[in-house]
Amino acid sequence: MNKVLTISASPHSFGVDSTQKIMYGVVLALLPALAASIYYFGIGALIVTAAAVISSVGFEYLIQKYVMKVKPSISDGSAMVTGLLLAFNLPTNIPIGLVILGSLISIGVGKLSFGGIGQNPFNPALVGRVFLLISYPVQMTSWPKPIIGRMNYLDAETGATPLAVVKEGLKNGESFSSIDIPAYLDLFFGYLGGCAGEISAFAILIGGIYMLWKKIITWHIPLTVLGSMVFFSGLLYLINPEGFADPIFHLITGGAMLGAFFMATDMVSSPMSVKGQIIFAIGIGFLTIVIRVFGAYPEGVSFAILIMNAFVPLLNTYFKPKRFGEVKKNG
């Protein structure tokens, strides 16, 4: 019995999950949304997505290898997720150059400048998107109209998103019911202008349910984000149904679904305790509605998430999980 035995402290048994599995699980969950995007936006969706994924992974590899001089970690799949999410947050007729620039900002500034995976305080894809949105507002806000089987890329005919239409209309004193927007069922399945991956609430729901089933995410953040959006927009709608859009409209348009299921749930930049996550999610819902209704932009999910990302360290410090057998302090 002269075997060299391995020694380590308990536990000696481990779960089967790994960072890779989680990341590729997210990629898998994003595929329905990608399919919807290609269905409605055609070749442009494919080009933008491919460019974002390839450049994100490429930048991660190059920066880690030659700038940071560490072992590249592209195999964990996190750069791929960032690339996909970035692409999903861009219009499908955006020039490739901007996509690559966005990837560089996402990966280089949003992620690696903080030390790489696990260290970034902000969702890297959103950092890239907001950078582009502020720097190239024209390209970033010309939305191609959904046309099934479209084959043209840059010169796609564009139009405003329903959110922008409603915002403009309400600002001009029209009543909500008189504004011409597509049927809700069309909006739910994705027949509307918008960013590549955000249009189909239906496809995102499929992905979200998959992630919930695989326990990649928990229900707390997505449901609370959507719930609080419904609550705050509902409040406004009840006060004045003609002056404000109804909650369902808020849910199925813009980036609400994509943000709630894929962006706000980003593990790295969301709080650790359930209490913290709930507050984080309520904040996102609230800020989204505030920006959509009162802000300068028609859409506010990205900003809301980034703002709440900044509160995460605070939430982690002040909202601890409930300790077992917590002894109430005197007083």
């Binding site: 790994s18 970690s73 593990m267 650790m272 305790s273 300790r323 077992f324």
Partner: peptide, 23 residues
Amino acid sequence: SRKEIAPCIRCARCTHVCPMGLE
């Protein structure tokens, strides 16, 4: 043998599974 240690991705699973409510 244990697997290679990767950076924490702050998935909060340790917090969720801790029966004592610790982090």
